[in-house]
Simulated assay, not measured.
Amino acid sequence: MKTIGFIGLGRMGSGICRQLIEGGYTLTVFDINESNSSAFADKAAVASTVEEVLDASSLVFLSLPGSPQVEAIVEQYIAHGVEGKTIVDLSTSYPLSSSKLHAQVKAAGGRFADASLTGTPMHAEQGSLIVTFGGDEDTFAECKPVIDTFASRGVHYVGGPGAGNIAKLANNYLSIMYIALYSEIFPLAEKLGFDTAKLFEIIGNSGVNCPMYQSNAAKIVNKTYDPSFALDLALKDLSYVKKLFDEHQFPSFVLDGGLNLLRIGHQQGYGANDCSEMARVVRDMMGAE
């Protein structure tokens, strides 16, 4: 499989595309932002429509903001004809949407899978992402050699349609909620007059310490809020988790607090900034920002 389509050349998608090209694959690419596409003009075929990408490729990767965008393109593809085509969604999407799209594409003669990414744009540039793959096992076997090109830290088959996104949302839920905890406690300690740099050091020598703590609590203590994962993306992912709880009529006690903190951050204009700026919301409320 040498001809690959790629839709979505943002911070993650562009790095993945470069890895695929370096791996010897021929790409046809598309992005609604023409400047993103033009960056690949000397490396890949740049399509003017998403249908053109499908026509030129046997395998199409989608790297998009979320389920609404993925659903819109897959619906276009089904109408256009997906017989013999494989569509792999690399986005963090809603698992039940992924399951529905899998069934629809399969009924139309194609294959669909969700292959969620764990990592940062830097990992994408380095080809060192982690991928959790949900779908049919034969589709996984077909796609794994291609995905290996940009996922040196592991490509995991985790189950049927939607399972890749369940694994990713579980990971993101825990990651985001850790940051929400740091965002509450350090501003409180600061408001109480405690030396938060000292507190950071003490906690860093306890069982609470972990890479997530070292990278994100430090941003909050130092008020740097270095960009890594946007607050609005965190809000989207936790909203998907909340929807899963609601679908099954389960309560979500801890999740609701994190969601509210993110919602206020969005309303205050922090959505495009790092999700560690949840701490600014708390500081605002305490009159300490």
Rank of each mutant, 00 (worst) to 15 (best):
Gln76Trp: 02
Asn205Leu: 11
Asp256Phe: 03
Ser35Val: 15
Ser239Leu: 08
Asn260Cys: 03
Gln249Phe: 06
Ile147Cys: 08
Phe61Thr: 07
Val82His: 05
Gly135Pro: 06
Gly154Val: 13
Tyr270Gln: 07
Pro187Met: 04
Ala167Leu: 08
Gln268Tyr: 10
Gly8Gln: 08
Arg283Phe: 08
Tyr25His: 15
Leu64Ser: 04
Gln249Lys: 07
Thr149Met: 08
Thr120Tyr: 01
Glu34Gly: 02
Asn172Asp: 05
Ile264Glu: 10
Glu75Thr: 11
Ala113Arg: 03
Ser175His: 15
Gln268Lys: 15
Leu259His: 01
Leu54Glu: 04
Leu90Tyr: 07
Lys106His: 14
Gly204Ala: 13
Gly287Pro: 15
Gly15Arg: 02
Glu289Leu: 12
Tyr270Asn: 10
Glu71Ile: 12
Met177Leu: 15
Cys210Leu: 02
Pro187Asp: 04
Thr49Glu: 00
Lys43Ser: 10
Ala115Glu: 05
Gly265Leu: 10
Val46Asp: 00
Tyr77Trp: 09
Val155Gly: 11
Thr28Gly: 05
Val146Gly: 09
Asp195Trp: 05
Ser98Glu: 14
His123Met: 12
Asn205Phe: 07
Phe133His: 00
Leu20Gln: 05
Ala151Gln: 05
Asp226Gly: 14
Tyr213Cys: 12
Ile202Asn: 04
Ile185Gly: 15
Ser38Ile: 12
Leu188Pro: 06
Tyr173Pro: 03
Ile264Cys: 06
Ala279Leu: 05
Ala47Asn: 04
Ile220Asn: 11
Gly258Thr: 01
Leu262Cys: 07
Phe133Lys: 00
Leu231Asp: 07
Ile179Glu: 01
Gly204Leu: 05
Lys219His: 12
Ile32Asn: 09
Phe245Asn: 10
Gly119Met: 12
Ser58Pro: 09
His102Ala: 02
Gly134Asp: 00
Thr3Lys: 15
Ile7Cys: 09
Leu181Ala: 11
Met122Cys: 06
Val254Glu: 02
Ile87Glu: 00
Pro227Lys: 04
Thr132Val: 09
Ala103Val: 02
Ala167Gly: 09
Val74Trp: 04
Ser63Pro: 07
His266Tyr: 08
Lys198Ala: 13
Gln19Phe: 05
Asp195Thr: 02
Glu34Val: 12
Ser128Arg: 03
Met122Trp: 04
Ala163Pro: 02
Asp232Thr: 14
Phe150Lys: 01
Ala151Gly: 07
Gly134Cys: 01
Gly265Pro: 09
Gly15Gln: 03
His123Asp: 12
Ser48Asp: 15
Phe253Arg: 09
Ala115Phe: 05
Ser276Ile: 09
Leu96Val: 11
Lys219Val: 03
Asp114Ser: 02
Tyr94Asp: 10
Asn36Pro: 01
His156Met: 08
Gly162Gln: 00
Ile16Leu: 12
Asn205Lys: 15
Glu34Pro: 03
Leu54Pro: 13
Cys275Trp: 10
Leu244Asp: 04
Leu259Asn: 02
Phe253Asp: 11
Leu9Gln: 01
Gly134His: 01
Lys100Gly: 01
His80Gly: 06
Gly8Ile: 13
Asn216Val: 07
Ser228Gly: 14
Pro211Phe: 00
Ala41Leu: 09
Ser252Asp: 14
Ile4Arg: 09
Glu52Asp: 12
Glu125Val: 13
Lys168Ile: 15
Val241Gly: 04
Ile32Ser: 14
